[in-house]
């Protein structure tokens, strides 16, 4: 723990020093689970990219989904591991930036709806009126799997906003916290990234007697690596392509476990058009 917090702090302070940024390729990732492990997870990725790209590469942690987008927008990071929605937001704010790679699993990502055992809700193939009047928590306000898609399917099924459907709607901040809140009974039901849930169950961190999956959403595109459009101008011609290749070549299971993904495949901005349309539909993004 000590080592982790130390690196964490060194990196957060270094974000404030623009000099470091000049010749270093900096990336970040949305903090979608346990923040203490972020530096450990992504520090290894930075080492790998540094080897492959032969420039200084640094990972910096950020505090929230929107902070990741802000850092990308103000050029404090040149690349980021975004969720579907944050990626769309970032590319809209930084014209010219592009999605270059996604996880194999991200072409057909899903969210789980999880419920506390006291609700008596059982796994089902569709959302039913038994959900009505329960308390419900999303993840971060800017999360695709924890907010955007679950809200979309809720509206599609019930034809009304979550605020009227449930007696209380909250935003936990990240997927780990969503699981913890539903597990403790603070919320009856929650929406969570399936990958974080599966990894948690496998690691034995979740009390599956107290909380279980009751529904899964249809598939949608999610996480992707997005790089700024001016990366080539800054780090040399073909840099973007080299970064993409380095990501696609990543095969070490230890590295891939950080995401957790089984591998990366190419991605384009157009792959995420459905996400943008959904965001406009549920009213958290203005039509362009």
């Amino acid at each position: 723990m000590n080592r982790i917090t130390k690196t964490l702090c060194v990196s957060i302070a270094s974000l404030l020093t623009p000099a470091v940024l000049a010749d270093t390729f900096v990336f970040t990732a949305i903090p979608d689970q346990d923040e203490r492990q972020l530096t450990e997870r992504f520090g290894k990725i930075a080492d790998y990219l540094e080897q492959q790209l032969e420039v200084d590469v640094q990972y910096i942690p950020v505090k929230s989904y929107s902070a990741a987008v802000s850092a990308f927008r103000s050029d404090q990071v040149q690349m980021a591991w975004f969720g579907g929605l944050t990626g769309v937001q970032a590319r809209q704010l930084v014209p010219g930036s592009q999605a270059i790679a996604q996880g194999v699993e991200d072409t057909a990502f899903i969210s789980y709806f999880i419920a506390h055992e006291s609700t008596g809700l059982a796994p089902a193939d569709s959302l039913t009126d038994t959900l009505r009047g329960k308390s419900f928590t999303f993840g971060s306000k800017g999360s695709t799997s924890g907010r955007l898609m679950p809200e979309f399917y809720l509206r599609e099924q019930f034809g009304e906003a979550p605020e009227t459907l449930f007696n209380r709607v909250g935003f936990s901040g990240d997927h780990s916290r969503t699981i913890a809140l539903v597990e403790s009974g603070a919320y009856d039901v929650g929406a969570v990234n399936y990958a974080v849930w599966d990894a948690g169950v496998e690691a034995g961190d979740i009390d599956t007697d107290a909380v279980q999956v009751i529904w899964e959403t249809p598939a949608y595109p999610d996480y992707q690596w997005t790089i700024r459009g001016d990366a080539d101008a800054r780090f040399g011609d073909g840099f973007t392509q080299r970064v993409q290749q380095a990501l696609l070549d990543m095969t070490d299971p230890d590295l891939l476990a950080a995401f957790p993904r089984s591998g990366f495949i190419p991605a384009t901005n157009a792959d995420y058009a459905p996400i943008e349309a959904t965001a406009v539909t549920i009213g958290i993004m203005d039509a362009q």
Binding site: L15, L16, P18, V62, A67, S70, A71, R73, S74, D75, Q76
Partner: peptide, 9 residues
């Protein structure tokens, strides 16, 4: 200000 100047001092 973070929108204007990034996450800076």
């Amino acid at each position: 200000f973070i929108q204007l100047f990034g996450l800076s001092t």
